[in-house]
């Protein structure tokens, strides 16, 4: 029944033993007052004790303990209520969160679609522009080529005349007599044909 004592009191065991040895001699001789029934007080204290105990029991069970119980109950209900409120608030917050997530996802999808549309439009516009530009360039190229061909043709026809006149002049200077124009023209024609120009 007294486990803690053995260690703590191990040093003073001799003193304890001395004290205990003196006990019976000094004290027991008189007998224990607890068992002294020559005085009515030994039993009267039990009667009074019973009355006091019963009064204490009634006061505790009727007022004291219900008081504690009511406070504990009040606290338990308060805690339960607060917990419920917190749970409801959390549910609300979760719902709001989900809503926000949904809205974000929707907005993202919408913006993505808008981006796609805009991109497509821009692409189409760019393609159309490139086409017209190409067509214009093509036309310019064609025009230029035609002009070049015309210039070339007119230049070619001029060459024959220049060559004929130059040949007639050169012959006239060298021989001193003007050549037959038909002969010169033939010679020039054959020379030009030989060079692949005429």
């Amino acid at each position: 029944m007294r486990p803690a004592s053995t260690m703590k009191l191990s040093r003073i065991v001799p003193l304890l033993a001395a004290g205990l040895l003196m006990l019976p001699a000094a004290a027991m001789a008189k007998g224990m007052p607890q068992l002294d029934f020559s005085t009515p007080l030994t039993l009267s204290q039990v009667v009074w004790g019973a009355i006091i105990f019963i009064v204490l029991y009634i006061m505790l069970s009727k007022t004291g303990l219900p008081m504690v119980a009511s406070v504990l109950e009040e606290r338990a209900t308060k805690i339960a209520k607060d917990l419920n409120e917190a749970r409801a608030a959390k549910a609300r917050a979760d719902a709001g969160m989900a809503e926000a997530d949904q809205a974000t996802a929707k907005a993202r999808a919408e913006s993505q679609a808008a981006i796609n549309v805009a991109l497509e439009e821009a692409k189409n516009a760019a393609a159309a522009q490139a086409e017209t530009l190409n067509a214009r360039l093509e036309k310019q190229l064609h025009d230029a080529e035609t002009q070049i061909a015309q210039a070339r043709a007119s230049a070619m026809s001029a060459i024959r005349q220049v060559a004929t006149e130059t040949a007639a002049t050169v012959v006239a200077r060298l021989t001193g007599m003007s050549p037959n124009s038909a002969q010169v023209e033939n010679a020039v024609s054959s020379a030009l044909a030989a060079r692949g120009i005429g």
């Binding site: 009515p40 009267s44 009074w48 004790g49 006091i52 204490l56 006061m59 004291g64 303990l65 406070v71």
Partner: peptide, 29 residues
């Protein structure tokens, strides 16, 4: 024949009741 033992019982009982009454008086959360 009210003994000093009974007086101590009364004091102990009053102590127990005071312990609860004074302790629980604030009814604090």
């Amino acid at each position: 024949n009210f003994t000093q033992s009974n007086l101590m019982m009364v004091i102990a009982s009053v102590g127990v009741l005071a312990f609860l009454y004074l302790g629980m008086k604030p009814r604090a959360m």
